[in-house]
């Protein structure tokens, strides 16, 4: 019987080593290890053995069975692996082909700057407010100390729709609205941004453009001063336009502030050396600002003996052009998608 077992082992090992695929391997498994398999048959025939022989033969059969199972398994795994590799090979794709894309959107450069400016001033305690674009002469001019016939109105050739209404020439109109809306006459810190309109249209002036305007009104004893205005605008310029820029305050004239200043910033293009953008002066005029005129406070219900403050305003379009290196103002309003698509990512921090 021993010989018989040895024979089965020898035959089966040889056959298994010759198996070429999972199917053949399975067949051999049935042939030798199955219920009717050869090795099983040997076990069945153990009835004729002596009690002494049985354990010896039994353990021999088990030994062979274990060994066969082991080599079949190894072979099985090998075949499975081969098969999987074949499948993977067949599923290979060209990963350099283009992806599936949903169209990418973008945010307009002007609105990006507006958000940054709003966030900066909100962090300094300013409320963001809005006002109408179709404004009354009263709020756009009269309540800002610009009575009818005032020569400074010439600086702002306007789009009137009748004797009363016009497209606002300046976001300053929101100053008056904010002061009038504050019926408690409490201190104000506000910023407002939006579209403004003037009756001019050439290579450097669009009839529609964007401004941002800030106003601080507080109790006189808190001494909101020109020095505070200077410091505030230094923060604004260095945070929004460029960290290394210098500011130059030039006395000027606006009817709604007294004293009034135009604020120049180191030329962004040449860094102050002088170039065609700054007309060789090294400075670019960026902001208008000043101490709120007592008449403006009074006309909007604040007692100028008790309140004081400052106001400032700037055009945003040019800031956007500078930040993104936009070479022509007209790009901002043409809305060519080849332009818009370039503003499709987050701004660097």
């Amino acid at each position: 019987m021993k010989e018989q077992i040895e024979k089965i082992k020898e035959n089966s090992v040889q056959e298994i080593s010759k198996a070429e695929n999972l199917q053949q391997l399975n067949d051999l498994k049935v042939k030798y290890l199955g219920k009717k398999g050869e090795l099983t048959a040997v076990l069945r025939g153990m009835g004729g053995l002596t009690p002494e022989e049985r354990p010896i033969i039994g353990s021999l059969v088990n030994e062979v069975r274990d060994e066969l199972e082991k080599i079949i398994k190894e072979k099985e795994e090998k075949f499975e692996k081969e098969e999987l590799n074949k499948k993977l090979e067949s599923e290979k794709i060209d990963i350099t082909l283009p992806s599936t894309k949903i169209k990418r959107g973008s945010l307009h450069p002007v609105n990006r700057i507006i958000e940054d400016i709003e966030d900066l001033f909100v962090s300094m305690g300013y409320d963001v407010v809005t006002g109408p674009e179709l404004e009354t002469d009263e709020y756009c001019f009269e309540r800002l100390n610009l009575p009818k016939g005032h020569p400074a109105r010439d600086m702002q050739d306007s789009f009137y729709i009748n004797s009363e209404y016009l497209l606002r020439t300046q976001t300053s109109a929101v100053q008056a609205r904010t002061m009038m809306a504050n019926t408690e006459k409490t201190p104000i810190r506000m910023i407002t941004a939006g579209k403004t309109y003037r009756r001019e249209d050439d290579a450097t002036h669009s009839h529609q453009f964007n401004q941002i305007e800030g106003l601080v009104v507080d109790y006189k004893e808190r001494n909101v001063s020109l020095a505070d205005l200077k410091g505030t605008l230094e923060v604004f310029v260095r945070k929004i336009i460029g960290a290394n820029l210098d500011l130059r305050f030039r006395p000027s004239y606006f009817p709604f502030t007294e004293p009034s200043y135009e604020v120049d910033v180191t030329c962004f293009k040449c860094g102050g050396k002088g170039c065609n953008l700054c007309k060789q002066t090294g400075w670019i005029e960026v902001l208008g600002a000043g101490i709120v005129h007592p008449n403006v406070l009074e006309m909007n219900g604040y007692d100028p003996e008790k309140f004081g403050g400052f106001a400032f305003g700037t055009g945003i379009d040019r800031l956007a052009m500078f930040r993104y290196g936009i070479t022509d103002m007209r790009y901002l309003y043409a809305n060519d998608v080849r332009f818009l698509n370039q503003f499709d990512r987050k701004d660097e921090e």
């Binding site: 305690g125 963001v128 810190r189 507080d218 020095a227």
Partner: peptide
């Protein structure tokens, strides 16, 4: 301010009560 020279005025930030601005 004009004749004294605004360049001679040192910038600072307003000293006012702290608050957080409102933004919709």
């Amino acid at each position: 301010g004009r004749i004294y020279g605004v360049d001679n005025i040192q910038g600072k930030l307003p000293v006012v009560p702290m608050r957080i601005g409102h933004l919709d």
